[in-house]
């Protein structure tokens, strides 16, 4: 006699196991079935747990495998690239090397977790950086292949690796190169710079777990040196107030003020203000909705090197509607952002 543990309800089996009209052998068989049924249920629960745990670990393993390598080189005050490899940079004695390794890894994590992007190129490209570039060098840059950081002169600027927004800014130039491929002059140049400031600021806010009201929206606040601070400057650029007196590099606030040939670091003022205004109008975390729209506009549109600010504004307005059709305040916030700068 066989019983299917899955088809006969437990209470029926229990009743049969104590039915005096049945033989002792049969009652014992029903009792055994209850026991087997119980064990089988335990097994199913275990199997479900097993699957769930295995899936969680498999996902983590895949994510680990997809995380890009981060390599650091030391130029030792020269301008020869890439410089000498820094072994085991996560434990380097040199604070700049250690800092760039840590922050670059976190920026990679930011792009992976928040935007689902694996490194600069979306395919796990190694993130390569050189520190101590040049002598008292007041700059950080992306040369098309890698990030480069100067030590600063110690007066106007300190070490450029001290700014988490600076590091994310440079990495974002790589993302732009591998997505919209914006030119580096005129309006596309201003947009290119703005993308780097937007994602640089978003990364800083994400790292500090700040919402849009807690964020300071400053760019380069952590790399200003004593001479700049003594003159009352608190940042290079302020996305919320691009023309502010506290900005070492003030920018225009209106689209109508952007001129052909303008330095992209000046022309980025209006799109920076548009992003900041949109995020602040909507509230919450900048990367949750408005950041997602900007990311989709940057990466989901193919290569369009000549994209102007009007085109980009129209694209984000359209994306706000299609990505968040049930949330009219999102589209309204994006619209408010662009209107603020005259677009």
């Amino acid at each position: 006699m066989t019983y299917s543990c899955c088809l006969v309800p437990r209470d029926v089996l229990a009743r049969l196991s104590s039915d005096p009209s049945l033989s002792a052998t049969s009652r014992k068989a029903f009792l055994d079935t209850i026991q087997i049924s119980h064990e089988m249920r335990d097994l199913r629960v275990q199997a479900t747990r097993m699957t769930s745990v295995a899936f969680a670990h498999a996902t983590a393993l895949t994510a680990l495998a997809l995380a890009p390598s981060v390599t650091i080189y030391d130029c030792k005050g020269t301008q020869s690239l890439p410089g000498t490899p820094v072994p085991n940079p996560g434990k380097a004695a040199d604070p700049a090397a250690k800092r760039v390794f840590g922050t670059t890894s976190e920026v990679a994590e930011f792009f992976a977790k928040v935007f689902g992007r694996n490194s600069i190129d979306g395919e796990g490209m190694t993130l390569m950086s050189s520190v101590h570039f040049g002598q008292r060098y007041n700059n950080a840059m992306w040369n098309g292949l890698q990030m480069i950081y100067g030590d600063g002169d110690g007066q106007i600027f300190v070490d450029f690796t001290a700014g988490t927004d600076v590091i994310a800014h440079e990495l974002t130039h790589g993302v732009t190169q591998h997505s919209l491929q914006l030119d580096y002059s005129d309006e596309p140049g201003g947009l290119n710079e703005s993308m780097s400031d937007c994602f640089g600021s978003m990364f800083r806010q994400w790292k500090l777990k700040q919402d849009v009201t807690q964020a300071d929206w400053l760019i380069g606040a952590d790399i200003l040196g004593p001479a700049a601070k003594a003159k009352g400057f608190t940042c290079l650029r302020d996305m919320a107030d691009p023309a502010g007196r506290h900005c070492l590099s003030p920018q225009p606030t209106l689209y109508a003020q952007v001129r052909p040939g303008m330095d992209p670091h000046a022309a980025s003022g209006p799109p920076n203000l548009a992003f900041c205004t949109a995020a602040k109008t909507l509230g919450g975390k900048s990367w949750d909705q408005v950041g997602q729209i900007w990311y989709a506009a940057l990466t989901g549109w193919g290569a369009r090197p000549k994209t102007g600010m009007k085109d980009f504004a129209a694209r984000t307005r359209q994306l706000a509607q299609t990505m968040y059709p049930g949330a009219p305040p999102v589209a309204a916030a994006v619209d408010a952002g662009w209107r603020k700068v005259g677009l």
């Binding site: 007041n138 700059n139 380069g220 330095d263 670091h265």
Partner: peptide
């Protein structure tokens, strides 16, 4: 010297 991350050559920062 102009440009760079800091935007040298603006009204307040020169090289």
């Amino acid at each position: 010297r102009i440009g760079g991350f800091a935007g040298f050559g603006g009204s307040r920062l020169k090289s």
